[in-house]
Design a binder for these strands. Sequence first.
DNA 1: TTAAATATGTCAACATGACTGACATATTTA
DNA 2: TAAATATGTCAGTCATGTTGACATATTTAA
Lengths: 166, 166
Amino acid sequence: MTDIFIDAKNHTDHQKFLKGMELLYFAYRDFISWPDDVLHALGFGRAHHRILHFVGRNPGLKVAELLKLLNITKQSLSRVLSTLVEKGHIRQDIGAQDRRQRLLYLTDQGQKLLNKIAEHQKEHMLKAFENAGDQSVEGFWKVLSALLADENRDDILMRINSGIDD
Amino acid sequence: MTDIFIDAKNHTDHQKFLKGMELLYFAYRDFISWPDDVLHALGFGRAHHRILHFVGRNPGLKVAELLKLLNITKQSLSRVLSTLVEKGHIRQDIGAQDRRQRLLYLTDQGQKLLNKIAEHQKEHMLKAFENAGDQSVEGFWKVLSALLADENRDDILMRINSGIDD
DNA sequence: TTAAATATGTCAACATGACTGACATATTTA
DNA sequence: TAAATATGTCAGTCATGTTGACATATTTAA
């Protein structure tokens, strides 16, 4: 690919917009929609994966926090979360200070499932990062951070970066 | 935000993966899911938007090409495309060389609708690009290009870059 | 010239993951 | 003790995808 296709200065605003929009659409699609045998064999879908992911990343997450992260209603969450609890992938502990709260944790089984699911995506993304180079990865992060909704940005960046500087 | 949160060298592979994955998820979601009054008032959804977009970008697109771009079945496309044709936003011309083909074009009405829909997203993305800077935008494009599925990459990049060097 | 392949469209049934509205229970707070 | 809060559940709906079967018009190949 010749440089003209990457050099942002050679693009009009409208071309930048179209390119960003289309690349984001196709790349997101290709990244999330791989043949997901593991999940499907268990009767799970992407909604289950998302819950496993965020509970794995935030052990002790409260139901209300998960709802806010996923930006869905409790009725939507209920069906999906219930099956994960029933099948022993997620554990719900009663809150220590507030006994109304349910604190969510992955069970060992849930952790194993999550690891298995993530394998392919991890490989895919790290290969892309390697091909693009560290400087491009930093640009990728910067643009994505800027694309976040203003109301969400601080919250999300804090969550995402927690643990990086440990 | 201190530099440590952006410097890729300070991340382990697993941290890079998690950060890329979550940022991509949240940024994509925030970018596509704005309060879409214009579409909704007409009884249209995101599927309609996608068709308007790709037909607008590729005038004379064949149905088969659109199906391949969107990666959906013709049955799925049918419902959505039909309503767009019925309501006068898309025109289907019979192919000149091959009369079995239907070549898709936006009508003036369709073009107006698309412009209206794109307004907010264009503003959102260009503001993000401005905040991040041209160098980051180039990194953003590079990583997204690398994230495309290998089978799709050449095709998609050719489409996306067509018109940039005119 | 006819048979097969191709491009498109349509009917029907189903899956997933969202939504709204109404209501129930347990627990904490004012 | 009453109100607010955190969670859960029932029931119905919607948007968008899927598979399978079949129909029509047109082009291509034997």
